[in-house]
Nucleic acid binder design. Structure first.
Length: 901
DNA sequence: CATCTGGAACAAACG
DNA sequence: TGCGTTTGTTCCAGA
């Protein structure tokens, strides 16, 4: 196979399917030609002609999980009404005419891939039925998640089980090995592989279907929604996700028995291999960053749409999964691509061919990718453009009939409306595997759970959606390797409903006027899907290795009358979900002061976690090009340090004659590859020296990344317009923001709310809306405790435990963990308000963080947009790449230090 | 007894 | 190719 060209591959693929499944019929014909076809996995093709999803039982097969991978949904098209957008289904494929196969539809319709082909096949007897019903699309999900109906087997490994019937060429273990074919395996191998994939997918699908209920998980709670509930929009039926479910199929393979763990498929894909960093870094992960991005769906609004107006929005939405089908992977490296294709789902492998779509597949790496298919995306924005695009985000106004896909950037604020995370989650949360029991709900740093509140609306109950999103520099989108997990139990007071949208599990909760439209998120856990399961999906381009950071993403669709809704979204600070990282990476949550004279010598107190007796604090300065220009290790006062507090003396800056404040950064290192995200720190000219104060100093310089606010968290509304956080890397700041992405917020709107950025540490209390935060965040709830693991052989940590310093009041807001986001690119943009691109917040970057060009970032304010814009724009692609690369590499590589080591 | 955790053993990837 | 390291996943055990 390898040899085979894409086309060949496809053929094979088809064959495979055909043989194994019936797919062929479907797909075959059309084999997609077009974009759609491409995108659409075989299934799609098949489906195309067919009736919409639901209905057809046939459709069934879940394609693989939805779209998530690249997930870029097609941009919504402009709705008739000005300013309003209609979202197209993510990933859905448009069927259009191409192939006869699709024919039926004639026009273009959007299908979800998922549904497509499989149906006929129904592998398992039982399952089939199930499939049909089963709405759950979760594509994403790992199969396991949802326990499939028992019968199925599942997902890939399950091997015997589920797959059995169908494809499973190789039962159980199929998986990985099969992939070998990537390398060069023989055709057979390839076939098998394909089969496996297919199988797994099918199984998944089946399983899902199998699940009678929409979701495997108990949705005990009634779904929250109000009449107006926008949600209904998504699906045909309000309640249901029905449509979605139906459409989607996610796969849920049943829990797979534990197979030996498959290696991650990727295995083959090495992440570094690409050479480019991109793949490597977790954050980026995936395809390379740039390239992909480029491809990513351009958010840009005004696309031409592909879809017919006619097509039902909701479905689209649902349909999204199909889109996923798009082989994103293909995009990866060409080499791999070829191979990859096999996936059942996609015919694509070959895709290269997509008509238009080509992007993906063959598309040159940089090219646009997948979505293309029906979309309008075609034009792939240049990298830069791309960055901007994303920044921009989409308009939050949609027609009720078509809610925005989950991967669409949305502002956190629109006019008077603002969705705010009043209490951010902890920076670490060990996600659980399907093979494990739940590890509980995500908790907040201050204790308790995250709290989300909708400001500017209190008329009636609304549904708050939550899903697990990425934390990398690219557009915020559903995370391929993590899914929200609904937690139930006596300790859980918040009713929630689990739904699947385009392959992504979404937890729905209700925002009640009586609760000030605030919700305590005590019902959301995080499920980790095996990398191998996800990576094998056809469309999946992201890699799971080291891609362990996520953000909680919240959305609300506020009815505006006239059939329109305003969709606002906000994302939490990044959350490290791996056990190891959480245990080993130092995190700086707050520090004070954030600036001092170039002469140094001042005492700097850091509060955070995972500090070790031998932790080092390194100050660095990067040039405009992102290169390290200065590096100096600070002297840590071990006697006044402990696991959660580091007291050190700020080193003297290299050039004491500077006339302007110098933006520098520092990070805590526990050794090679174990460093915190960089934090912003300014060295002030002697002239300014007077102010060395912590915050104060910053204030003077807007540009500084430091936010103006008080260190702590002031969340208070009255914030300065341009807050930024000092912490993290400036570079990252922008991107991140957790919250938000709120792009526009700041500047434009007078906001009601605090600047979006404040997020980090915040701890606001929900209701109060206020920020209680005022008080500084306690620098961390962490109390000093002995070092857990005693590095010192039992001797106990050298630090005097007791010591902590009360963090000076001026602590900087902590970033929660540091998130990594480094990206210079802001996550989302808001459309309307011009996204403030800049608004950067700080994004903490986690490890790698550093990479980002800090230069710019440093400043944060929105105001200008700065930073982002500037920086970003100013940055060359190479730089970007470089930056990204770093991330990937692991960590910040701030120059020196351990990295290499 | 089930859930939630914290730790760690194991083994695949990496480099 | 071999080897040490890193990281993902599965298990175990205690609360």
């Amino acid at each position: 196979m390898g040899a085979a060209s894409c086309e060949d591959e496809e053929l094979e693929f088809k064959l495979v399917f055909g043989e194994e499944k019936e797919a062929p019929p479907l797909g075959a014909g059309g084999a997609g030609e077009e974009l759609d076809s491409e995108d659409a996995p075989p299934c799609c093709r098949l489906a195309l002609g067919e009736p919409p999803p639901y209905g057809a039982a046939p459709i069934g097969i879940p394609r693989p999980p939805p779209p998530r991978p690249g997930m870029h949904s097609p941009p919504p098209r402009p709705a008739p009404s000005p300013g309003t957008w209609e979202s197209q289904p993510a990933r859905s494929v448009r069927l259009g005419g191409p192939g006869g196969s699709s024919g039926g539809a004639g026009g273009s319709r959007v299908l979800e891939c998922p549904s497509i082909r499989i149906t006929s096949i129904s592998p398992t007897p039982d399952p089939p039925a199930a499939l049909e019903d089963n709405p759950d699309p979760w594509g994403e999900g790992s199969p396991r998640d949802y326990p499939p109906p028992e019968g199925f087997g599942g997902y890939r490994e399950a091997g015997g089980q589920g797959g059995g019937p169908f494809f499973s060429p190789s039962p159980g273990s199929s998986s990985l090995s099969s992939w070998s074919f990537f390398s060069d395996a023989s055709d057979e191998a390839a076939l098998y592989a394909a089969c496996d994939e297919v199988e797994s997918e099918l199984n998944e699908a089946a399983s899902r279907f199998g699940l009678g209920s929409p979701l495997p998980s108990p949705r005990a709670s009634p779904r929250p929604w109000t009449p107006d509930d926008p949600w209904s929009l998504y699906g045909p039926s309000p309640g249901g996700r029905g449509p979605e479910d139906s459409w989607l199929l996610l796969s849920a393979p049943g829990p797979t028995p534990a197979s030996p763990r498959p290696a991650s498929p990727c295995g083959k894909r090495r992440y570094s291999s690409s050479g480019t960093p991109s793949s490597a870094s977790p954050a980026l992960s995936r395809r390379g960053s740039l390239g992909e991005e480029g491809p990513e769906p351009p958010p840009p609004p005004p696309l031409p749409l592909v879809r017919d107006p006619g097509s039902p929005g909701p479905f689209d939405y649902v349909g999204a999964p199909s889109a996923e089908s798009i082989p994103q992977k293909t995009r990866r490296t060409s080499s791999e691509q070829a191979v990859a294709l096999p996936r059942s789902e996609e015919p694509a492998p070959c895709n290269g061919k997509l008509p238009s779509g080509a992007e993906e597949a063959g598309a040159p790496p940089g090219g646009p990718r997948k979505e293309a298919a029906g979309m309008d995306y075609l034009a792939v924005p240049s990298p830069l453009a791309w960055s901007k695009a994303r920044i921009g985000g989409h308009s939050p106004i949609f027609r009720t009939s078509a809610l925005p896909p989950l991967d669409w950037p949305l502002p956190s604020q629109y006019e008077q409306l603002e969705l705010r995370i009043e209490v951010q989650p902890r920076a670490h949360h060990r996600a659980h595997y399907e093979t494990e029991g739940s590890r509980g709900a995500v908790k907040a740093a201050p204790g308790g759970h995250p709290v989300v509140k909708l400001l500017g609306y209190s008329e009636k109950p609304l549904t708050l959606q939550m899903f697990i999103g990425t934390a990398d520099e690219r557009n915020l989108r559903p995370h391929a390797f993590y899914q929200v997990h609904r937690i139930t139990g006596k300790m859980v007071a918040t009713a929630s409903y689990e739904a699947v949208v385009s392959g992504t599990k979404v937890l729905e909760m209700t925002l009640l006027p009586e609760n000030n439209m605030a919700a305590n998120i005590d019902c959301a856990g995080i499920l980790k899907l095996r990398n191998s399961d996800i990576e094998l999906r056809k469309g999946e381009t992201d890699i799971g290795r080291k891609n362990t950071r996520v953000r909680l993403v919240f959305r609300v669709h506020v009815p505006q009358g006239s059939g329109k809704v305003v969709s606002v979204q906000t994302a939490s600070v990044p959350i490290e979900c791996s056990q190891r990282s959480a245990q080993e990476l130092p995190q700086v949550e707050a520090y004070s002061p954030s600036a001092c004279s170039v002469r140094g010598g001042e005492e700097l107190v850091l509060t955070g976690s995972n500090f070790l007796p031998d932790s080092k604090v390194v100050f660095i300065e990067r040039g405009p090009d992102g290169k390290l220009q200065w590096e100096e290790e600070a002297t840590v006062n071990r006697l006044q340090s402990n696991e959660v507090t580091l007291t050190l003396t700020v080193p003297e800056y290299s050039n004491k004659r500077v006339s302007r404040p110098v933006q520098a950064y520092f990070y805590v290192s526990n050794g090679r590859r174990k460093r915190s995200p960089t934090q912003s720190f300014k060295f002030l000219p002697v002239i300014f020296k007077e102010e060395p104060l912590p915050d104060a100093s910053l204030r003077g310089f807007p540009s500084a990344s430091g936010p103006p606010f008080g260190s702590d968290m002031d969340f208070s509304p009255p914030r300065p317009p341009y807050p930024s956080y000092p912490h993290e890397d400036p570079a990252y700041e922008t991107p991140y923001l957790s919250e938000g992405f709120s792009y526009g917020t700041p500047p434009l709107y007078p906001q009601t709310g605090p600047p979006p950025s404040y997020r980090p540490g915040l701890r606001m209390f929900p209701e109060t809306g206020g920020a209680t935060g005022c008080a500084r965040p306690p620098p961390v709830s962490l109390l000093p405790r002995p070092f857990p693991s005693d590095p010192y052989g039992g001797r106990g940590s050298p630090f005097p435990l007791g010591l902590q310093f009360p963090p000076p009041s001026p602590f900087r807001p902590p970033l929660p963990s540091s998130p990594p986001l480094e990206g210079p690119f802001p996550p989302q943009g808001s459309v309307h308000p011009p996204p403030a691109e800049g608004y950067s917040e700080v994004g903490p970057s986690y490890g790698p963080g550093e990479g980002a060009p800090e230069q710019e970032k440093s400043r944060g304010g929105y105001g200008s947009g700065f930073r982002d814009s500037v920086p970003i724009q100013g940055i060359t692609l190479e730089e970007v790449s470089e930056i990204i690369g770093r991330d990937l590499s692991g960590f910040p590589a701030p120059p020196g230090e351990e990295p290499p080591a």
